[in-house]
Design a binder for these strands. Structure first.
Length: 489
RNA sequence: GACCCUAUCGUCUAGCGGUUAGGACACUACCCUUUCACGGUAGCGGCAUGGGUUCGAUUCCCAUUAGGGUCGCCA
């Protein structure tokens, strides 16, 4: 790509699906902003998610990716993934994999970008490479052009960009018009480093150059970049390229309103997969943070969200992460899971907890899992909820022991055991009938027998339907467990 | 310190000058029920504060306060 610095390689298509108004430039006067309106050419939407491989995908970053993806899908545009690995010291294959795996888990497929975590491997798309570490020649050439035009200068071995001192007008699709003045520190020295003394280009520079060369039309990113946008616009001006449209989305905060940093629980996207959340629940929840379909609907399919999603509906204020509401959505999606996927995720959850369900007949595993479906939220809960199906030795819930394994219940449980033992078929309806008639004979309510029996069979005070779980366990195991429990009285 | 953004129930939000301020999560009752969960019914609970503008402000403007962001040879 041998492109003159003042001639960006934008390839506008006539098929535009975005209805943008006006582009903008900088404020020329410190007192009165002068907008220079430039009608943008019709263009197909091109957005990008440009994470830095830190070994961590922040939940906020995941939402930024999601909003970019949704906008691309809504407009029929292109979603680009670009890895901003200019900080060589922190790069690693693993760190890039965390990003790729995270996006794949969420289902956010990219139209252009890396195929693997290897920076030197070919990617897909016509604007590659999509790793900044592989694009250094471009940056070098652009810096030299700035240097030769007097828009940048050498300083202590580094190269600094001559930043304008006048306020910059940022027209933001979410926030509105923002006039960014210099801070007092910037007043003292408004210029900023674009090339380090070791020759490595810096974020502001590479971010802008790649957005130019990848024909990015809309920059949708976290509000933490809003103040930086003045620098980016100045850089676009220096390169003679109209800046893209900007949409700065609000940040995600902790439940207490504090900033969510890497150390905070739930800050890493990876943790949600590890905690047994469904990606569709996480995606749905993330959509609801800072965006609203405005019709009181909460649970939305991805297709519906794509259709309704647009930039103007994005809220301007930060949102706190509400774990409980995520859990609720998780429950909603868990309950409507297709059987095959449910089994697969459940077996995986048991495996993670060190329980090998493959040692049991498939029909038994499925029958066991069927009694659990819709009764728990995250798959991480499953091993403790239903582990009794796959192990014979377990402790009894101590509160349950105090409440149910009491002397007067011993003979009752014994009687129930005998009634169960006399059943022709060990089925849920028969078990229920036997339990209820035993209760009637003893002159007690069904619950008096249910609770000790459940504790005996599962070790827990709550769980799947008692009659159904006994049927799944079968006569032999069920009676053995009741016998074992009778020893505890 | 400077600059920028923001402000409706505890939380996520609807609202875009006149509403009994709506919904969801959470919470509290009650119903359903073998436990739990689900489902159903009801309830609790909000426009940060002070000035304007207006016949009338949750809504528009300003200030205050509070929260967040930025001002790196990090991204």
């Amino acid at each position: 790509m041998d492109v003159d610095i003042a001639m960006p390689c934008r390839k506008y298509t006539s098929a535009s699906r975005c209805k943008q108004t006006l582009l903008f430039t900088t404020v020329q006067s410190a007192e009165i902003p002068i907008k220079t309106h430039v009608l943008p050419p019709k263009m197909k939407v091109r957005v990008r998610f440009a994470p830095s491989p830190t070994g961590f995908l922040h939940i906020g970053g995941a939402r930024t990716a999601l909003f970019n993806w949704l906008y691309a899908r809504h407009t029929g545009g292109t979603f680009i993934l670009r890895i901003e690995d200019t900080d060589a010291a922190r790069n690693s294959l693993e760190a890039v994999s965390v990003i790729l795996d995270g996006l794949r888990w969420l289902g956010l497929d990219w139209d252009e970008g890396p195929v693997t975590a290897d920076a030197t491997a070919p990617g897909k798309g016509n604007c590659g490479p999509y790793f900044q570490s592989q694009r250094t020649a471009n940056y070098q050439r652009r810096v030299e052009a700035l240097l030769s035009r007097g828009l940048a200068y050498q300083h202590e071995g580094a190269v600094k960009f001559k930043m304008q001192r006048e306020p910059v007008l940022i027209k933001d699709l979410v926030v509105g018009d923002v006039i960014r003045k210099l801070t007092d520190r910037e007043e003292a020295d408004p210029d900023f480093v674009i090339l380090r003394s070791d020759g490595q280009p810096m974020f502001h520079l590479v971010n802008v150059i790649d957005d130019i060369e990848m024909d990015v039309t809309h920059v949708i990113r976290g509000e933490d970049h809003l103040s930086n946008t003045a620098k980016h616009i100045a850089l676009f001006n220096a390169f003679g390229v109209p800046p893209p449209h900007y949409a700065h989305i609000p940040l995600i905060l902790n439940a207490d309103g504090s900033k969510m940093s890497k150390r905070d629980k739930g800050a890493s996207l990876t943790s949600y997969a590890a905690d047994g959340f469904l990606p569709e629940a996480v995606v749905n929840y993330l959509c609801l943070l800072g965006w609203s379909p405005k019709d009181n609907r909460e649970k939305l399919s991805l297709a519906e969200t794509i259709e309704r999603f647009d930039l103007p509906q994005i809220l301007r204020h930060n949102a706190r992460f509400d774990y409980e509401k995520l859990l609720w959505l998780q429950g909603e999606y868990s309950r409507s899971l297709a059987d095959d996927r449910f089994y697969e995720l459940a077996v995986h959850a048991f495996a993670r907890a060190g329980m090998d369900t493959n040692k049991f007949p498939l029909a038994y595993v499925k029958a066991a899992l069927d009694t659990c479906k819709g009764k728990f939220k995250t798959f991480q809960e499953l091993p403790s909820y239903a582990g009794f199906y796959f192990k014979n030795e377990f402790d009894y819930n101590s509160d349950g022991v105090k409440k149910d394994f009491i002397p007067e219940n011993k003979s009752r449980l014994q009687k129930l055991r005998d009634a169960f033992a006399g059943l022709d078929a060990f089925t849920a309806p028969n078990l229920e009938t036997a339990l209820k008639s035993t209760a009637t004979d003893l002159g007690v309510k069904a619950g008096v027998l249910v609770h000790p029996c459940r504790l005996a069979a599962t070790g827990n005070t709550a769980g799947p339907s008692l009659y159904h779980l006994l049927e799944v366990l079968g006569r032999e195991k069920s009676l053995a467990r009741m016998d074992r429990a009778l020893e505890r009285f």
